[in-house]
Write a protein that binds this DNA or RNA. Structure first.
Lengths: 214, 214
DNA sequence: GTCTATAACCGGATAGAC
DNA sequence: GTCTATCCGGTTATAGAC
């Protein structure tokens, strides 16, 4: 029987997954070494192959798990049935941003692997976003259209808006190593990210409001 | 004597660099294979080592060259001495976006390598951005402050603004493989990027304008 | 379940002929 | 300058003892 099939807890398997997450996230697939994963997990390298059939299948387990968590977070938000688009979008930006705070290296990993030959990360991410989109996007566009008709917000394309939110949030984390280097006075990671979250929320919400000239 | 030291043209060396650019950009450093670079360049693998001492030095040549080009583009823009901050920022977004259109894979490469152990990409990029920043940023902040004092624009932090522009533009390209998959009705790469550029310019400029409530 | 030992392979780099 | 042939270290993966 495959280990893990019966549903108890498997500390060794979990330790390996945790270690693999750290290493893959930090190095990317190609540069990650099974020996290093084994060392960090405190187990023998051969033991990894007892639980996972190959480097590939271990990698898949890692990214699939992280992606599932994001979908759940976003779905929870929409389940709240917030009616005010302004507040909903503010929360959307914040929920996404805080998810990234919990997984600051995930965006780098996905970006690294998205343009590689390995089709797996793209498949997983497209699947995740696709599941989130179904329903939620149409509903958000409807709220935006109503608010625009009432002159409360500018007319806005929901896909471009989500693309922008996604870009601003994810890239805040991806670009951190560079920002830290070229702009040291911004302070520690935590300080900088608190400021950054405010700036992103402010940018997105400002762009939604009607202009003085409207 | 090192090949290339006398300044003539070196078609083979150039062919290798071009091929290496394609492969490194597509795969990242660790996954790139010297054999594959040789095949694409149409030369023997050993010949690469005649022109470049190692995989490392070939990689450095590639990213340094691309980065230099971006700095030149941005410096040209600021050399124009545009006085209207609204127009300057619009041009800034567009120049950066069009540079990325010419090098659509560069952002992915830099992101991939930035979080790796190789310190080179970070050094190169920090150097490039640092050189652009010197002077230009202070001047832009001054223009923004003047416009804010005259109530033409909202009060804006220039670093957060540049961070946002950088994020929106770069991530448009990085996320393309995903966007294309989850949102196929957006059309071809060219069509989508034309629309995306408009959306980014619009988002940034909207956020700068005073709100109706100000 | 966990280990040691090793097979099998791959890829960067070099030697040397032409 | 360009090629063929090869070396050598490192990495994934497996065999088999305990």
């Amino acid at each position: 029987m495959t280990p893990g099939a019966r549903g108890g807890t498997f500390p060794t398997r979990e330790k390996i997954k945790e270690a693999a997450g750290d290493i893959f996230l930090h190095k990317g697939y190609a540069a990650a070494r099974m020996q290093e994963i084994a060392d960090r997990a405190g187990v023998n390298k051969a033991l990894i192959y007892y639980y996972f059939s190959s480097k590939d299948s271990l990698f898949e387990a890692i990214i699939r798990e992280a992606s599932e968590e994001l979908v759940m977070n976003l779905s929870d938000l929409f389940a709240l049935q917030e009616k005010d688009p302004h507040r909903l979008i503010k929360r959307l930006v914040q929920v996404h941003f805080h998810f990234l705070l919990e997984h600051p290296q995930l965006p780098c990993l996905l970006v690294r692997e998205l343009s590689s030959d390995n089709p797996l990360p793209k498949k997983v991410l497209a699947d995740v976003i696709g599941r989130f989109s179904r329903g939620n996007i149409a509903r958000l566009q409807q709220l935006l259209d109503q608010a625009a008709a009432a002159k409360q917000l500018r007319r806005t394309n929901v896909q471009q808006l989500l693309w922008s939110i996604f870009s601003l949030n994810v890239f805040s984390f991806i670009s951190w190593p560079v920002i830290e280097t070229v702009w040291p006075e911004i302070g520690t990671f935590d300080q900088a990210m608190r400021k950054r979250e405010k700036a992103v929320v402010d940018l997105i919400l400002s762009s939604l409001l009607p202009r003085r000239s409207d």
